[in-house]
Design a protein around this nucleic acid. Structure first.
Length: 357
DNA sequence: AACTCGGGGCG
DNA sequence: CGCCCAGAGTT
């Protein structure tokens, strides 16, 4: 198969990247641990969102041993607000596996990396190439979009056909000897800075003359948009139970699909859909809570649910005891693994902002 | 192959 | 308000 991209074009991308690459915290030093944490956080999450989380996380868990030794709840607390909390759990499990089974040494091959929980095809390629400069390809949303335009590939964004074709091209194009990491990073950076989803800045692009979609005058039309379902409407009721300056929080069960082990205001779902729990959290089968006056409403969106939360004052019918309940001050709350919804509900009510030190 | 999982920022 | 983001795991 002929090389789909001329050597001059390849060199043009690298020249562009060396001139334009952003200074990002995880680019300061390239060890496997830092690459891994940044890649895990960056899954489906914007760079600007990740930066403060990355710095707090690295300060608290500076290496894989520190992460492995931490309690899961502490890891979750440092993830609170980032979303996709399974990432934090698999990160923690993988750290323990690396320390317990691999002597604290990071796998340096794609196949070795794929054995670890939370590391899929993209992240394995990223760690192998960025941290170890192994000749491994990667395809993320940026690369998929760049290739869809550069080669005018058919298929919707995220479709298996486009994704598979993008992986083939990525494997063909990645440097065999050295420089795989820089090449991969340059591709992603081009997607992040120039080959933007809505309005590509073709005038700034090192591949403007090479781009098939541009030649058709339809760069912005590639890739085809993904079909999306409308979010389901959900109405929740959350209770603010206060006692001597503290707020009652409830911890979601470990087996909950969503946001397991995260802390939240006691919550139930109104209406009949029951996409969330329809009842107040119980203790030994007993109802502990009664709802009082309405305090306000807020909107929150999680993946496919559009949620309206009615915030009410709550009263205790019995004394909550044992694990799964806590009385938190504003200060405590900043160190807890709160759900985003609870964080939002408490914002402005807590004396100090919920910034995690 | 289709679904699920958070949350935010921007046009 | 819709769209998309340095995806992975489950069904």
């Amino acid at each position: 198969m002929p090389t789909p991209l001329a050597p001059r074009a390849r060199a043009r991308l690298l020249r562009w990247f060396r001139a334009e690459r952003r200074a990002l915290p995880w680019r300061e030093r390239r060890d496997a641990y830092r690459v891994w944490i940044s890649e895990a956080m960056l899954q489906q999450t914007r760079v600007a969102t990740v930066i403060p989380y990355f710095e707090r996380f690295l300060a608290r868990f500076p290496d894989v041993e520190a992460l492995a030794a931490a309690r899961e709840e502490d890891v979750l607390a440092h993830w609170s607000g980032l979303g996709y909390y399974r990432r934090a759990r698999t990160l923690h499990q993988a750290a323990r596996s690396i320390v317990a089974e691999l002597g604290g040494v990071f796998p340096s091959t794609r196949t070795g990396l794929l054995e670890l929980p939370g590391i899929g095809p993209y992240t394995a390629g990223a760690i192998a190439s960025l941290a170890f400069d192994a000749p491994e390809a990667l395809v993320d949303g940026n690369v998929e979009r760049v290739f869809a335009r550069l080669f005018a590939l058919p298929g919707a964004l995220g479709s298996s056909s486009l994704k598979e074709r993008a992986w083939e091209l990525a494997r063909e194009l990645v440097p065999r000897a050295k420089g795989a990491g820089e090449w991969n990073e340059a591709l992603m950076e081009l997607g992040a800075l120039v080959c933007l989803p809505r309005e590509p800045r073709c005038g700034l692009c090192p591949w403007e003359a090479d781009c098939a979609a541009r030649a058709l005058g339809r760069a912005a039309e590639f890739p085809a948009p993904k079909a999306r379902k409308p979010g389901l409407e959900v109405e929740l009721e959350a209770l603010l139970v206060e006692r001597s300056g503290r707020i009652l929080l409830h911890q979601r069960a470990a087996h909950e699909g969503r946001m397991a082990l995260m802390w939240e205001l006691p919550t139930r779902e109104l209406g009949s859909e029951h996409l969330f729990s329809a009842h107040w959290p119980l203790q030994a089968g007993r109802v502990l809570l009664r709802e009082g006056e309405e305090l306000g409403r807020l909107r929150h969106t999680i993946t496919h649910h559009r949620i309206q939360v009615v915030l009410r004052r709550g009263e205790l019918a019995a004394q909550p005891r044992g694990a799964g309940w806590c009385w938190a001050t504003a200060g405590d709350a900043s160190g807890l693994a709160l759900t985003g919804m609870t964080r939002k509900a408490l914002r402005g009510r807590c004396a100090s902002p919920l910034s995690r030190a």
